[in-house]
Amino acid sequence: MSDTDRQPSRTRVPMPVAAMSDPHMGDAARHPARVEKLIVLVFVLAIVFIALFGAAYWQNWSDWILGGTIGAGLLLLGFGLTAWGKYLMPQGPFVEDRHPLASTPEERDAMSAALVERSAVVVKRRKMLGGLFATGAGIFGIVAIFPLLRSLGPVPGTSLDVTGWRRGMVLVDSDGRPVTRDTLVPGGIMTVYPRDTVIVNAGPQPLITDQGQAIDQTVLIRISDQDYTTQPGRETWGPAGYIAYSKLCTHLGCPVGLYEQLLELLVCPCHQSMFNVRNGAVPEFGPAPRPLPQLALMFNQDGHLAAQAPYDQPVGPGFWERS
């Protein structure tokens, strides 16, 4: 930019004129006429494709035709415009000065002085007023957070520690059928829920509540024909070889959905934690820190498998209040 540009406006100044013959105004293309024809062709094709998109939309053709036509149309349109800009418009090189952003030392001092000296006057004269105002604004800032956060949801309380399982709760499958002695053969596995979380006649299919799906989900495995003890103190927990563990991985709460039948390992597909079914689901591999909690089972008088007691610890991943 030349100096004449920075003169005050409104006075007519002679503007510097460049001739069309100035090489700065020239094309980058060696054969501009040929490039121009090519761009004409590209634009015409673009128009055809974009019109085709319109037709395709009107006729409700499939999505790949819609995307293909509009994609090709816009690509050609963009390509033509870019080629126009690149080959047929003034390329320069042009130069522009960088004006330093920094102000003069006087202007800086004036700014700093305004900030420091004016505020000094304010603070000296009205110290108490300023302090009170700042206190009020600060307290408002803090208390404003409370409704913003606290209204969002309840405090956790014990809600993270409990599940829907309690003494006598019958285990049902996803269709709401109770589990009997013959439901699984040794080596078999299934996912079970507390009976009251599976609503059988809600529609064409049973509906499992969020609580049942996300928190109470339990994996039931049969490993032998006899009562099975996974760990000392759990002698009565596995009647007829039925063993139940919380299906929530203790790492991040994914469902432990894979079962390696030969090795009798429950595997979490998210981060490959592996839990040994026989010794109380102690993690044998991966980032999971704790065994899956085991649900104590019993057969009730109807011959249905039911819980002896709630889980003896919170299910799922760890959190600060978990003891």
Binding site: M1, P16, V17, A18, M20, P23, G92, P93, F94, V95
Partner: peptide, 14 residues
Amino acid sequence: SELDPEPVPVRIDI
């Protein structure tokens, strides 16, 4: 090789 950079001309004599 490049031309020497010049300011953008205000007017071009079309």
